[in-house]
Design a protein around this nucleic acid. Structure first.
Length: 706
DNA sequence: GAGCACTGC
């Protein structure tokens, strides 16, 4: 990954010579006091010894132990960054990578982006002198594609490994391989340097990048909050695990005496029980989705009306990912004097955000979980019991600032029956992307790959078949040149990458770039329930009769035009504010569109580097739709005599989602982006196509049938 | 005629 230079007042590695002011001094003093008070501070020497002794170390540390901020600093002090080497720390989330790096830079009293930096998608805040580098696990995985031995790192710390995201899991496997390759290279260099290199390079991807670099072993540290270190320890051949104490205030657990048949109602009752009977302090309620949250919000407001005037000071605040940033921010503000906040949240409050003031947690013990059926190519979202780990995580949210209480809306013996931890994501998602990346790293035997938790055989087989069908792999399962290589370089789902390659040939790359950027993230339109009709009417002028993809293209372009006009009219640099307003007026999710614009630029750069020519098809959208048909042929559906649709690949009876512009239009044949089961089996994001195109453009898949 | 936890390249 290219390293951007960051402007700085620090030159030649010397700190800015400005004398510290009194407030700076006291701030510095505070930082030192804080650092020394962290549980991890007392074990610095021991930890460093363990790292020196063990090539792989598992660190189990509870919330508040300071492991993410302190350990990298200890390693720096102990000399692990000598010779220009880096300590890399991965996080599953962008926000964590950013905020932890910022905190550590402060503690080290250096400018962020210099010795301490971070790198996340769209934002590289590091420079050539960066030694402690925080990043998302996806970034490090990409780096490994360019530098297969990760030769610039002396230590890699994988933080929050218990979350078991796809990226973390793949990274854990890859790092194991890289570590072995580096140790091997060190030994071989010691003996007979150049011959050993030649041999090693023939073996697999992880050995390849070694040539011409000074060999050194790689230290690996896995940090987890999980109760169970065994999983990681066993995976790394009995690696040593050490525990670091956390620092949490005590949380009292309360369980129900009888099972609750209706957890939403039970949550409501508990909210008022706390509000009327407990000491001051805000309440956090974990619910499974927008629907539940909105209905609880309404019911709380209703019931408050029946209480005496002086008992009505309870303020319900919803938070879930689809809300605008402004609305999300409301939960962070302190409640008005005399009021108690009751935050109604999805799992967004479990890990991603920390809300101040919470003293009471209500946990119904349920969660909305996504799963994937590889045979039907269908995702589903269902409400299922949470895991023990999740329940404990939720409980912990009550003890951040002082002693708290957790109201579990189930019996204590039910807790014991919960699964220890949530099924790792890799076992419940489409693997085509992961497998393509592994193939590009030179790992050919996917079924035999050393996953920490192996996905099902059928899931792997299905993904391999999809990749072959898309032309990314040869019949022997090797990366197809150049198509497979090009696809693996793009940070997109393989179908999207395929569509871009087609579009390049058929001169509609610009439209396709916009399309994949718009489909890549969360949904672009935001319909506040109470303004549903207004949103739909206002959106009419974007709508394309061809379907959702071209509708997104016109949304993107219209916003772009609007911004351009504003700039030309002397609007200055207030792009963000202008865009926010435009989004609000058009019921478009500002965060999503912004993300789509960043994605567009990033992908455009990639394809231009590949020598693609970004041209537009103008008003002739036929070729564009043919490109979609040629790449989304596995996701096609045809109208039946009874008006329902049949997904051609799985044979499932599906319905057009009401959010589609083609809802009610009864097109004969469509390609879609997503098949998801919620209340029904819905297809989302559709474009009308001619069914004959399928046999014409994907003859290997649709042999000439009627 | 709906309603969708969260991440990430």
């Amino acid at each position: 990954m290219a390293q951007g230079e960051v402007k700085s007042s620090v030159q030649n590695g010397k700190p800015n010579p400005m004398p510290p002011t009194a407030s700076l001094l006291s701030k510095k003093q505070k930082i030192i006091e804080h650092r020394n008070s962290l549980p991890i501070a007392s074990v610095e020497t021991r930890l460093i010894e363990e790292v020196k002794k063990n090539d792989i170390l598992i660190i189990i540390g509870e919330t508040g132990s300071g492991k993410s901020t302190q350990l990298p600093q200890f390693l720096f002090k102990a000399g692990f960054c000598q010779g220009g080497k880096m300590v890399g720390i991965t996080q599953p989330r962008r926000i964590a990578a950013m905020t932890v790096a910022k905190r550590v830079a402060e503690e080290c009293n250096v400018e962020l982006g210099q010795r301490v930096g971070y790198s996340i998608r769209f934002e590289d805040c590091t420079c050539s002198s960066t030694r402690l580098k925080y990043m998302t696990d996806g970034i490090l995985f990409r780096e490994a594609m360019l530098d297969p031995l990760l030769s610039r790192y002396s230590v890699i710390i994988v933080d929050e490994a218990h979350e078991r995201t796809v990226h973390t899991d793949v990274l854990l496997a890859l790092l194991k391989k890289i570590q072995r390759a580096r140790s091997k290279a060190v030994n071989e260099v010691g003996n007979a340097a150049s011959e050993a290199q030649t041999k090693a390079s023939g073996e697999d991807g992880a050995s390849r990048g070694f040539q011409g670099r000074k060999a050194s072993p790689l230290k690996l540290i896995i940090m987890s909050a999980s109760l169970d270190a065994r999983v990681f320890s066993e995976y790394y051949g009995g690696a040593k695990a050490v525990h670091v104490e956390g620092r949490q205030f005590p949380v009292e657990d309360l369980f129900t005496v009888h099972p609750e048949s209706d957890y939403v109602d039970a949550a409501l009752v508990t909210i008022f029980q706390i509000h009327l009977g407990e000491q001051p302090g805000d309440i956090l309620v974990f619910l499974t989705g927008q629907d539940e949250i909105e209905s609880v919000e309404r019911l709380v407001k209703e019931r408050l009306q029946h209480l005496p005037e002086d008992s009505r000071k309870l303020l319900p605040l919803p938070i879930f990912s689809a809300l605008s940033s402004e609305q999300q921010m409301r939960v962070f503000a302190p409640a008005p004097t005399g009021f108690r906040k009751v935050v109604l949240a999805t799992n967004i409050a479990e890990t991603s955000i920390t809300i101040p003031g919470i003293r009471y947690v209500i946990d119904p013990g349920m969660v909305k979980a996504r799963s994937f059926d590889p045979n039907k190519g269908m995702e589903s979202l269902h409400v299922v019991p949470a895991s023990k780990a999740q329940a404990l995580q939720r409980r912990g949210r009550a003890g951040r600032e002082g002693p708290g209480k957790c109201f579990h809306l189930y019996q204590e013996r039910e807790f014991e029956k919960l699964e220890d931890s949530t099924t790792p994501e890799i076992k419940r998602c489409n693997l085509s992307n992961v497998i393509l990346q592994l193939k590009s790293l030179g790992i050919d035997d996917i079924l035999g790959f050393d996953f920490i938790d192996k996905p099902s055989r059928s899931s792997i087989v299905k993904a391999l078949a999809e990749l072959r069908s898309l032309g990314a792999l040869t019949d022997e399962g090797k990366l197809e040149k150049p198509v497979g290589e090009q696809m693996s370089r793009l940070p997109l789902d393989p179908v999207f990458s395929r569509a871009l390659i087609w579009a390049n040939k058929l001169n509609c790359l610009e439209e396709m770039l916009i399309t994949v950027a718009m489909l890549n993230g969360e949904s672009i339109f935001y319909d506040p329930r109470e303004k549903r009709e207004e949103a739909r009417t206002s959106r009419h002028h974007f709508a394309s009769v061809e379907g959702d993809h071209l509708t997104y293209v016109s949304v993107y372009r219209e916003c772009d035009e609007f911004l351009k006009k504003r700039r030309e009219a002397g609007g200055g640099n207030k792009t963000d504010k202008t865009m926010k307003k435009w989004c609000k007026d058009n019921f478009v999710n500002h965060r999503s569109l912004n993300n789509a614009r960043d994605t567009y630029s990033q992908i455009r750069q990639h394809v231009e580097q590949m020598g693609f020519n970004v041209s537009s098809c103008g008003n002739d959208t036929l070729e564009f739709r043919r490109c979609l048909a040629g790449s989304f042929f596995l996701k096609a559906a045809q109208r039946q005599l009874d008006g329902t649709y049949r997904a051609l690949e799985s044979g499932e009876i599906v319905h057009i989602h009401p959010s589609s512009v083609l809802f009610g239009a009864k097109p004969e044949c469509v390609v879609f982006d997503e098949l998801m089961q919620t209340s029904k089996k819905y297809i989302k994001n559709l474009t009308r196509i001619d069914p004959l195109w399928l046999t014409e453009l994907a003859p290997h898949h649709y042999k000439t049938e009627e």
